[in-house]
Design a protein around this nucleic acid. Structure first.
Lengths: 146, 146
DNA sequence: TATTGTTATACTCTATAACTATA
DNA sequence: TATAGTTATAGAGTATAACAATA
């Protein structure tokens, strides 16, 4: 029941629909992360570093959807816990280059089976084709100029 | 460049792709909300109330993807600012029923043109058909059992 | 006993500005 | 002057547990 019919229903509001879909997907992932004492943000940092190799901190911020001050804080504890390592770039000494360590990578591989099970469950219900289509559309949306 | 090819690229990771797409969409919306001193969460509450009419607080929490303690705090300030009103349900006195006020609705209608412009820009770049398809898929994903 | 909502608490992220070091 | 990153700070949300009132 819509009291203001000229406003789109929340289910057809892109930001709200994206959030609700994300909550559905994140729910079991959060359970998994909680069991290994990792925040969502740290998990995104590990995924980005595993994918991109050695990168500077601004790249992590952009790819993991975090602000640079948050990255500074997060990497400080991740370095202390041995999940990532940092080195000053010798060419441009303003830059700090970051890599994932074996210990950091192990966190991802140790939980790979659980991750695949979560994705598999969604795929089983939606179908692989629709899931691929959704990921294609999300990639396209992500690239839109705002 | 993937260092662990058996882990999906972040662009094909549903939670990360949903987040990145959401950040793209939210960026201009955040600018709009900031100009009217409204948080994303309060904006979602207004949208949900405008759509559903009078509802109890648990429903708001579920629909707006918020925890009940957050809803308690958020509604307290929104009530003080005259955007929503609350009344004890006479049938079940545990329930608090919440409605959007005219002032709250005005916030949405006053910013309708700006909202439509943001959506219109995305639609112009992606095409209406793809956008509809995306919203259909997001609704379907949202309903998956996890 | 279960449910609705509130309160309390600890933690984390967000957002911005000011700052340092380097280019 | 501009850029990469850090620090400081205020504000807000997240998550959980404990609680009160009601069913």
């Amino acid at each position: 029941m819509t009291t203001q019919s000229h406003i789109k229903s929340t289910a057809r509001s892109l930001p709200i629909a994206l959030l609700r879909a994300r909550e559905t997907v994140m729910s079991p992932i959060r359970d998994m992360l909680q069991s290994i004492h990792l925040t969502e943000q740290k998990w995104r940092v590990l995924r980005v570093l595993d994918e991109l190799g050695e990168v500077e901190q601004s790249t992590i911020a952009h790819e993991a959807c975090l602000l640079l001050p948050s990255v500074t804080r997060i990497l400080r504890t991740m370095e202390a816990e041995g999940q990532i390592s940092r080195r000053r770039d010798s060419d441009d000494k303003r830059r700090t280059m970051v890599t994932i360590t074996n210990a950091g990578r192990s966190i991802l591989t140790d939980n790979l089976a659980a991750s695949l099970a979560i994705t598999g469950n969604i795929e089983a219900q939606m179908g692989q084709e629709k899931l691929d289509q959704l990921l294609d559309l999300l990639e396209e949306l992500q690239a839109v100029r705002t």
